[in-house]
Design a protein around this nucleic acid. Structure first.
Lengths: 131, 131
DNA sequence: TTAACTGTATTGCAGTAGTAATGCAGTCAT
DNA sequence: ATGACTGCATTACTACTGCAATACAGTTAA
């Protein structure tokens, strides 16, 4: 199933690599449930044309997303959103999340925010990304 | 004031650049209150010898930390932990934290964790980094 | 002043990241 | 079988990153 109105955008001179901007957007859509198992994404050529970039750049993003388990790809067909496949126990997965959490927390403290104020940011982010 | 027992460590082949590993450690110590305004850090040569790396690598880490406002440096003297200087309103600073929070949240969702489980990770991280 | 400490600027170099042009290869409707 | 669509591998080039060797420059106490 092709989702009609998914629009992506990249900012080539933002410092963040194009392929990564694209990855993040797809990943957020999947994590947030806007894209679910079975949905297809625009072809590399389509997406490349839309964004005005080389198709290999798009391909690279897709490839990395497959490596992470977000997408499944097959030559001649297209890119499809993969089935969610949680690996390991809950606490193991929580452990994996820890470094990112630490990074954010340290940054928050360094901004002079109180723990409760930092927590509020996390809560807000959770609400907005809620599936 | 020199803190006697601060020990740093780097893992050169971890993929994370040495200077960044060092930055993160110092930054975490400052954010967590283990290093406060006025404390001095080991000299670049000292630190370089301890870690077994080039002193320019240490210097680079220190330089970046100064750019971020964590340290103050002056030639001939040494590196000193700067005064905390929160900029902008609370909500402005919370806004700055938002991208990092989003990144962590998306990752958590992608790991198949429930919002409450993600929040638990954040709380745990906050406790451990508490000033 | 000088010794012994501080950090810095310059330069070089190897490795990698990011992007792209182009041709190859699988799939499917006709 | 063929055309039109899929994604992929190869190659190449640029720019940047990370690290280091070395020489320079400020500070302070004797």
């Amino acid at each position: 199933m092709q989702k009609p109105s998914l629009t992506f955008s990249v900012h080539p001179s933002s410092g963040v690599p194009i392929y990564r901007q694209l990855m993040d957007q797809v990943q957020a859509l999947v994590a947030g449930g806007k894209l679910v198992h079975g949905d297809t994404l625009p072809s590399v050529r389509q997406m490349a044309a839309d964004l005005g970039v080389n198709m290999m750049t798009v391909s690279k993003a897709y490839a990395k997303l497959e490596a992470v388990g977000v997408l499944e790809r097959s030559r001649g067909k297209g890119m499809v959103v993969g089935a969610p496949r949680p690996e390991g126990s809950i606490s193991q997965r929580q452990e994996q999340l820890r470094p990112l959490a630490d990074q954010a927390v340290v940054r928050g403290l360094q901004l002079g925010l109180k723990p409760s104020q930092i927590l509020d940011v996390f809560k807000a982010s959770l609400e907005e990304n809620q599936p």
